[in-house]
Design a protein around this nucleic acid. Sequence first.
DNA 1: TCAGTTTTCGTGTACGTCCACAAAAGTAGG
DNA 2: CCTACTTTTGTGGACGTACACGAAAACTGA
Lengths: 355, 355
Amino acid sequence: MAKQVKIKDIAKMAGVSPGTVDRILHNRGNVSQASRTAVERALAETGYRYNIHTSAVSLKKSYKIVIAIPTAVKGEYWGSVLSGIEHALEEYSDITIKCEYAFYNQFDIFSCRNSFDSILDMEPSAVIIGATFVSETILLCSRLDSLGIPYAFIDSVIEGTSPAVTYSSDQNACGRIVGRLLDLFTGKDAGIAVFGSRRIGNERANNSMGRMSGMLQYFGSIGNGREIRESKISVADPEESEKDIIRFLDSNPDVGGIAVLNSRGYIVADTLASHGITGIRIISFDLTVNNMRCIQNGTISAIICQRPELQGFHAVKAIIRTLLYNLKEKNEHHIMPTDIIIKENLPQYREIYNE
Amino acid sequence: MAKQVKIKDIAKMAGVSPGTVDRILHNRGNVSQASRTAVERALAETGYRYNIHTSAVSLKKSYKIVIAIPTAVKGEYWGSVLSGIEHALEEYSDITIKCEYAFYNQFDIFSCRNSFDSILDMEPSAVIIGATFVSETILLCSRLDSLGIPYAFIDSVIEGTSPAVTYSSDQNACGRIVGRLLDLFTGKDAGIAVFGSRRIGNERANNSMGRMSGMLQYFGSIGNGREIRESKISVADPEESEKDIIRFLDSNPDVGGIAVLNSRGYIVADTLASHGITGIRIISFDLTVNNMRCIQNGTISAIICQRPELQGFHAVKAIIRTLLYNLKEKNEHHIMPTDIIIKENLPQYREIYNE
DNA sequence: TCAGTTTTCGTGTACGTCCACAAAAGTAGG
DNA sequence: CCTACTTTTGTGGACGTACACGAAAACTGA
């Protein structure tokens, strides 16, 4: 509880007026080098920090944050992200922050381009990006960079950009978690299957690949000679995927555990259930409504979840802090924890993730 | 982003002066019934809310929060709680909040009495209580109630009190989680052992009992005829506990999984390791340094953790909100999620829980 | 050196609330 | 109806920062 150092104090120490200190704090320019160094030393010595409250009181400017993420469906991944974003905005309801959305279809590159093109017209103070398409994102970021508009990444990292902050999760670790859990869940002689996405080229699939390598890495490292069999399931066509699954299991009868490296675990679970196949442990990703249902009825053993809610929440808070304090904290990268969810702790997480 | 309604607006609507509105908002009394009803209607109509910033700016009063919890050791349970508390206080560094601590020895009822007796002398604005001894806590709370001092519970609930807010976790669910995990981790024919605390009468032990009933409930519900064998381990005497453990396993050779319902899982793990016993899955509670070590080296399969950090964090934030907004949100009870931690997601959680 | 120009600096007001103090209204007793 | 007292109400200054505006200083070129 050190006593608050005020702008006046800094001004006195540096032998200038409060106005000059203010100019330096806000990079408003028109300050001589002499004053600047004097003030900056005083600032550093005292460890001055804005009083956020008085600052907010007199702040004239109102910020506009643009949220550029894939279309958010309640109960799905990006829906949770969005609910975290809205939650964070509520916390700052006492300062004027406008918020606009630039949703895009994560499976349609043209929709992404359209959406990203419109962002600059919105004149944002900051942008929060849930990236899917690499080169489109890089283009957007370089434009933002040249305008000095800070941006934050949620869920994924795009190389060749300089976000103020990134919130994502460690997909490789996710894969290793799945590996260990399946290893623990199944007998030594059971085979392990991995179902990935058929679709490639978008970010979710990249996530899926990171998970895959993590999982293979796990089974490689323990060296107990487990057979890992890969397969793809089609996202587009439910009937086709059902046939795929049954065909796969027919030709691999020893499989005791299945990892579904995207959020479609419920498709596999439902298929097994409808064919009366039991005794196979399934692990999948994301707390979607369908996956929750399967956790409830026991057809999915565990769900791996990466806190989309918190990612959105923290990204907004961080970007607002960047704006308020005029920070240049470049490329701060936060890895969200990976939650393991089973039937028994589902209710508690449900409260956090949804609503 | 509705336009801010100001005190002046309310005053105009109710036909009184801003001072009168302020008096009503802060229960400062000396207001006629007529003004009160007029103002309260205007308040309700507009849905007026403080502007927290300007409020904080002009607030003369400084709050003092007293933290009454068991002695916090860094890296242990209450140490994490404390670090969450300190973290929350940092977020409010712009308003003057003093903080005093009233630590007590959770195994010594006299130390608790001494500590609790000293709290009122500190003239707290609010108290945060980590309760261990029931009747002492009830006494403290009734005194606080009569003085109108709000208090929050962390970690446990004491019946017969009216806290402003409670942050705890669902011990029964924890027990069921342990049950399911051990069930998944071990073959059908393996026996399951439960190690509880020998010590009783304090809250941790109560937690331990809640976990026990949850675990038995799980195995009762699935009805696969698992043998559950209970034992106690002595906390006080390491050598004695080591002997206990070996003796127990000698007479129960079929045991394939052990649940340690307190934070002492590392004792069991170390004992097995030093006797060259492998193949037994151990699950324990709390991310202490010793337990983390055992997760790392593979002797403990999973740790159940109840976010002590977050409990402390949220309790402080909630109690400060109560003070700032003068709220009377009685008995709001938040259940923290229960995290399942294995070797692969340990690093991510470590970042959250410690530091 | 001096007028004109640009850069740098200081002053003063506004923000919405809290709260102290003074003013006004109400009450009771004579 | 007046005084003494209590209750109720209005007013104005303070909080620390942001920012506009105008003053002062520094620089420019002749």
